[in-house]
C-alpha cells in the first residue's frame, strides 16, 4: 500500500477494514462517533462523515476494498481528525482528471473526490498504477 508521510505525535483512534458495502456504513458511523468525541459540531460531523463516505465508496467500487486509519494529532498548530484510506486497486491514471467536477470513470455522478476535498480542511492523494491509491483527509477541530 502507498504510504503518506506521518507525524509521530499523532495517536491512532482506530483501524478498520473495508470489504463489503455494509462495512462502509459501519465505518462511516464510527467516523461520526470519533468526530463527536472530538467535540465537532453537527455540521462538521456531517461533512467529515460524508467526505469519508465518498472515499470508502471509491475504495469499495474501484479498489476492491481497503484499510482505513483514523488518527488525531496536531497539524499546523491545529487539532485535527486525520483519516487515511488506502486500497490496493488499479490506481488512478489521471489524478487531475479524477479531481475535476463531473468526471467519472464508472456510474457515479463525478463529484466524489472533488466533493470530498471541498468538505474537509486538508486533502492529500497519492496513486500509482497497479499499486493502489491512498487518500488522507483532515478536519480541524
Amino acid at each position: 500500500m502507498l504510504q503518506l508521510t506521518t507525524d509521530s505525535n499523532w495517536t491512532e483512534l482506530g483501524k478498520y477494514i473495508i470489504k463489503t458495502e455494509h462495512d462502509i456504513v459501519q465505518v462511516r458511523q464510527l467516523i461520526r462517533v470519533h468526530a463527536k468525541e472530538m467535540n465537532m459540531g453537527i455540521i462538521d460531523q456531517t461533512r467529515v462523515t460524508t467526505a469519508v463516505s465518498e472515499l470508502l465508496r471509491n475504495m469499495y467500487n474501484y479498489g476492491g476494498g481497503g484499510e482505513v486509519l483514523v488518527e488525531t494529532g496536531v497539524v499546523d498548530d491545529k487539532n485535527a481528525l486525520i483519516i487515511t484510506c488506502a486500497d490496493e486497486g488499479s490506481g488512478i491514471e489521471d489524478l487531475d482528471l479524477a479531481m475535476s467536477d463531473g468526471y467519472t470513470s464508472g456510474m457515479g455522478m463525478g463529484y466524489g473526490l472533488p466533493g470530498a476535498k471541498r468538505l474537509v480542511d486538508r486533502f492529500e492523494i497519492k496513486s500509482e498504477k497497479n499499486i493502489g491509491t491512498t487518500v488522507r483527509v483532515m478536519k480541524w477541530r
Partner: peptide, 14 residues
C-alpha cells in the same frame, strides 16, 4: 433535508 445535509450537498457540488 436537515441544515447539515443541505450544506454538505452544496459542498459536494451536487
Amino acid at each position: 433535508i436537515s441544515p447539515a445535509i443541505a450544506q454538505t450537498i452544496v459542498h459536494l457540488g451536487i
